[in-house]
Amino acid sequence: MGSRIRTAQKQARELGRLRTGYSIPSDDPKKRPRPVKSKTWVLSSHSEHYVTAAAEAWGGNVERWQPQGNGAPQFRVITEAEQLEAILPPGDPLSQANEMWNKGGCARRCDGETEQISRHPCLCLAEHGPEWHQLRQDIRTKDKVCAATSRLNVILPDMPDVGVWRVETHSWYAANELAGTVDMVLSGTGGKGLVPVTLRIEPRTRVAGGQTKHFPVVVVEIRGVTTRQALTGPLPTAVALDPSGSSQAVAAIEGPKGRDWIAEAAGVLTSDDVRDLWMEAQTAGAVHPKGTDPLSKQLMAIAAAKDDENSREKQGKTDPVPDAEGVYEAEVVTEEQPARPAWPAVAQPRA
Rank of each mutant, 00 (worst) to 15 (best):
V327S: 03
A238E: 15
A284M: 12
E14C: 10
M100D: 02
Q68M: 06
P196V: 11
E177F: 03
A342D: 13
G129F: 08
V185K: 02
G188A: 10
L152Y: 09
S23W: 06
V287I: 15
L15S: 09
G180D: 14
G224W: 04
N310K: 10
M300K: 10
A240Q: 01
D28E: 07
N310V: 03
A339V: 07
I139M: 08
P121Y: 05
A284D: 15
L43Q: 00
N102P: 01
G2E: 13
R140V: 03
S45I: 12
A345Q: 11
R151N: 11
G255S: 11
R64H: 06
T232Q: 14
V62I: 10
L269R: 14
E221D: 15
K257P: 00
G190Y: 12
A72Y: 00
A55G: 07
G285C: 02
Q66Y: 01
Q211M: 13
Q66R: 11
Q337F: 04
A72P: 00
S23Y: 13
H128L: 10
A324I: 07
E202F: 03
K314F: 03
L295Q: 02
A345H: 04
H133L: 08
L277R: 06
S23R: 12
Q282L: 09
A72C: 00
R136D: 01
Y50M: 14
V250H: 00
H133A: 15
A330V: 09
D183V: 00
K144N: 12
G291S: 08
Y328A: 01
S47H: 12
S44E: 15
G326M: 09
E331Y: 07
L18N: 09
D27R: 09
A303Y: 07
D276N: 09
V182N: 03
K103V: 03
I87S: 08
S311A: 15
K31I: 01
K31Q: 15
V217W: 00
H288G: 10
V207E: 12
E329L: 07
W132P: 01
I5K: 07
M1I: 04
L295A: 02
A324N: 07
E48V: 10
N153W: 00
T40C: 13
H133S: 14
L125P: 00
R32Q: 13
A342Y: 00
E85V: 12
A147P: 00
L84Y: 02
V239T: 07
I24A: 07
G245T: 01
R119S: 14
A208N: 02
L84S: 10
T226E: 05
V220E: 03
A345C: 00
Q282S: 05
T169N: 06
K39M: 03
T114F: 02
I222L: 13
P160A: 04
K306W: 08
Y22D: 11
S296M: 05
N310M: 05
R17C: 11
L88R: 06
P67G: 09
L269F: 05
P344M: 07
A57S: 13
V225A: 01
R151K: 15
T181I: 07
G233T: 11
W343Y: 10
P243V: 06
T334C: 03
A107Q: 11
E313L: 13
T270N: 04
V346T: 14
T232F: 01
Q74H: 02
Q348T: 13
H49P: 10
G191F: 09
N102V: 01
M279E: 10
D143W: 08
K306G: 01
T227H: 04
W172N: 06
A86F: 13
V268G: 08
A251L: 03
A174E: 11
